[in-house]
């Protein structure tokens, strides 16, 4: 009885600490719709759906990820480090290609930032992202036209990323991703076949113990590169702080 109460206290204190730890810096965590997180609650359902669907298709075809996040405020941080941290926490873009793009709006501060992953810096140098913001977004955001501003900008940046990655909206995901996925699955099959053969040989010799447990699972899993097929999550991409910021 005493023991139970003790463990109860221990558990609850653990939860309280956890709660405190997460409350300290409440950066909006990725939702199950990863590509769009309207934490400031300023976008319409249609805009959100449009962004979600298009980013999802782009991701499935090219592994490039475009994420739109709106936050009520930056919690005292500066826009640039907030954006870089969010970018890295989300892991936007593919881990190897780093082809992620983040569009971040801070409502209270009235600031907008485009943060570009390493892999897209060639297609979207800082100066260009600034010009694109000036051209497509800032005039609209100045008039609090959130939906139009974000939508306009999203489309413009989407077009640039699509051009860079060779994505065509008519394309089905298999057209672009086919080759890589195929080689991945062939590799996985080869690994399985190898282990089966090894297993057969080993058991024929009368000793079944040469295969370490769990190894098979580990190796077939690693070939998928952490990019889950159900996939609304970051690919582990990073950014070095490239992009541009604007006030509106």
């Amino acid at each position: 009885m005493k023991y139970r109460r003790f463990s109860l206290i221990l558990l609850s204190s653990l939860f309280i600490t956890l709660g405190l730890a997460t409350a300290c810096f409440a950066m909006p965590q990725p939702t199950d719709r990863f590509y769009i997180n309207d934490a400031a609650n300023i976008l319409s359902e249609e805009t959100e759906n449009y962004i979600f669907e298009n980013s999802q298709k782009l991701d499935q075809a090219t592994k490039a990820q475009i994420v739109v996040v709106t936050v009520p405020n930056l919690e005292g941080k500066d826009l640039e480090s907030y954006a870089t941290e969010l970018f890295r926490t989300y892991g936007i873009g593919d881990k190897e290609k780093n082809n992620g793009l983040l569009l971040l709006l801070a409502l209270e501060e009235r600031k907008f930032r485009v943060e570009v992953g390493y892999g897209l810096e060639g297609a979207l140098p800082d100066g260009k992202t600034g010009r694109m913001q000036d051209q497509y977004m800032i005039p609209l955001l100045k008039e609090n036209k959130w939906d139009e501003g974000i939508m306009n900008g999203y489309k413009a940046f989407f077009a640039e990323v699509a051009k860079e990655t060779g994505y065509d909206s008519d394309m089905s995901p298999e057209d672009v991703a086919g080759e890589e996925e195929l080689s991945d699955s062939i590799a996985a099959i080869l690994v399985v076949v190898f282990y089966v053969i090894m297993f057969i040989i080993a058991s024929k010799k009368g000793k079944g113990g040469i295969i370490p447990g769990g190894h098979l699972y580990g190796s077939s899993r690693s070939s998928s590169g952490g990019h889950s097929s159900g996939g609304f999550s970051g690919g582990g991409g990073s950014s070095g702080g490239g992009g541009s910021s604007r006030g509106f």
């Binding site: 100066g127 600034g130 010009r131 490239g242 541009s244 910021s245």
Partner: peptide, 23 residues
Amino acid sequence: NENFTTLMDELAGTENRIATARK
């Protein structure tokens, strides 16, 4: 001046990259 704006963005971006790399 558009040239100036572009340059400013490049410079700000570089500065930010330095800050990130420094961290």
